[in-house]
């Protein structure tokens, strides 16, 4: 069974100079899409990725990461639009770094593409009616 999950990887400082992530593809036939990364050699690293593949390979991949010393958390945060509060002003549109908000040309409604959201949280406080909500 193929699955796809968003996960957060914490790299302890001692392993940030090793190549770890590429082995997910090489050894476990998993594909990954790095959403956010901040990995500096010698410091703790953080990476948010969408990891997909066969369930069994996925489990093996996660086991490999854990054994390599990577701490894994499921993506605990999710940005959701409270449709009742959104006034479709569009203040979010040019702030979002990934272009998750677009205007429907005819109705001038603001559309939110959840799949493009990388949970950077920029929109949350910048939304005038505070319609963007962060869930843990």
């Amino acid at each position: 069974m193929a699955i796809s999950r968003r996960i957060v990887l914490h790299f302890p400082p001692r392993i940030t100079n090793q190549s770890i992530v590429c082995r997910l593809a090489k050894d476990f036939d998993l594909s990954f899409n790095i959403i956010k990364a901040s990995v500096t050699p010698g410091e703790e690293g953080l990476m948010v990725m969408e990891l997909s593949g066969d369930q069994r390979n996925y489990d093996k991949g996660i086991q490999y990461l854990t054994e390599a010393g990577v701490k894994i958390q499921s993506l605990s945060q999710d940005v959701v639009r409270n449709e009742d509060r959104c006034t479709h002003c569009g203040a979010c549109i040019n702030l979002c770094p990934t272009g998750a908000f677009t205007l429907e040309p005819k109705t001038r409604k603001v559309l939110f593409d959840h799949n493009k959201c990388v949970v950077c949280e920029l929109c949350i406080k910048a939304c005038p009616p505070r319609a963007m909500e962060l869930y843990f």
Partner: peptide, 11 residues
């Protein structure tokens, strides 16, 4: 420069 409105045209 990307633009955005604070006034809701939809509303």
């Amino acid at each position: 420069v990307p633009t955005a409105s604070l006034s809701s045209h939809y509303k």
